[in-house]
Design a protein around this nucleic acid. Sequence first.
DNA 1: GAATACATTTTGACTAGTCAAAACAAACGG
DNA 2: CCGTTTGTTTTGACTAGTCAAAATGTATTC
Lengths: 220, 220
Amino acid sequence: MPSVTVENYLKRILLLSAGNGGLVSMGALAEALAVVPGTVTTMVKALAADGLVVHAPRRGVRLTAAGRRLALGVLRRHRLVETFLVNVLKMDWGAVNAEAEQLEHAISDAVLDRLDALLGHPSVDPHGDPIPGRQGQLPSQVYATLATCGLARALRVVRVTDQSMEFLQFAEKHGLRPGAAVRVTDRHLASGLVTLRRPGGRPLTLSLVAAGRILVEPER
Amino acid sequence: MPSVTVENYLKRILLLSAGNGGLVSMGALAEALAVVPGTVTTMVKALAADGLVVHAPRRGVRLTAAGRRLALGVLRRHRLVETFLVNVLKMDWGAVNAEAEQLEHAISDAVLDRLDALLGHPSVDPHGDPIPGRQGQLPSQVYATLATCGLARALRVVRVTDQSMEFLQFAEKHGLRPGAAVRVTDRHLASGLVTLRRPGGRPLTLSLVAAGRILVEPER
DNA sequence: GAATACATTTTGACTAGTCAAAACAAACGG
DNA sequence: CCGTTTGTTTTGACTAGTCAAAATGTATTC
């Protein structure tokens, strides 16, 4: 049974490896885990010895099949718990991430299955993030973001890929939760600003970086 | 924030201190925690240094007010989680103890409050054990057991004070769950046997020890 | 009251995970 | 090409929790 620490490392590597060729730098991992870089090096070598990752010294780390399977399990627990906290316990959208961070390590498969059934086998969590299946299948779809989508198109928010409480509350406040209709009216690369409009709402300006964290799909 | 280990020690001390004058022996604690006695001595000294217990060397250990408050918190989490697992997730009566053992350390006050409300602020868990209140108030009532009650009286099971899966499954199988009607027809001290009868059920014989783990109150 | 039994405590050692700080490698700028 | 910057690895040390086994009290028995 992997320790809480191992589960956290694997989950982080999985989350950070989206984008690059699956290779995660020691620095990024240390940052995300709130740990000193040297610790990560030590720990990653231990994970590699257990066959959960491959470590390319001074280049980065990548999950093995076994490591990925474990990481997807943690992610599944995390996202199902989040869904439960929001849908059943009616907890605050922004606060559930921290709660799930704890519970994801304490929940057994038996409990998880019941929870999954109770929630109606959801495929995405309240932030719109996909929930891995029991065998680790991940409906990996490529979405545009508010930073990359076409202008003036009718769009729908599908996902918010930033778990920080400030960002989630900001998004919530302006109605940018999964399912919300939105339209980008202007994008100015030099100043790094994106302006959007929600039907019935005031125009909203945010940075390109923030816009890049909101995934969208064409309306209908 | 107390560690998982500290929480487990405190909870065990609380559970074992019922009966004796609150004084728990190192041996009993080691046994209950599945740890070697020397480890308990070391750990108890650390707990004492933190003001959570008082350690009377070679005599035993007792909770301080602070330790008791913490322990009751853990117990509250444990029993509310059990109630949730049985009442909402419809999990097996005998299996929930092990699950709750993990979850009790991962659940925050915020989540617990919602859970408590969802369950309708229950005062006992599925085994009939009382659930401590938010401020640690424990409805401490003295019950008779099947080993001590009067003969031929109409009784009702209120609580099963043995968390082992075998015992719980045995009790379940013979309808001895909280609320069940029962009557002791015979008790033979020499052989250590108790015979009972459930309305509409066959007579059942069990040992005095086992009978002592089933708390009852007079019918009506 | 001495001898024995039993529980408890002490001692030394080990594992998992972490940090601080020194040593190192690779890339980059001039 | 050489020096500097930047990220990575190594080293040594520390904490929490644990065990095995020896040492020590305390009780019990005769």
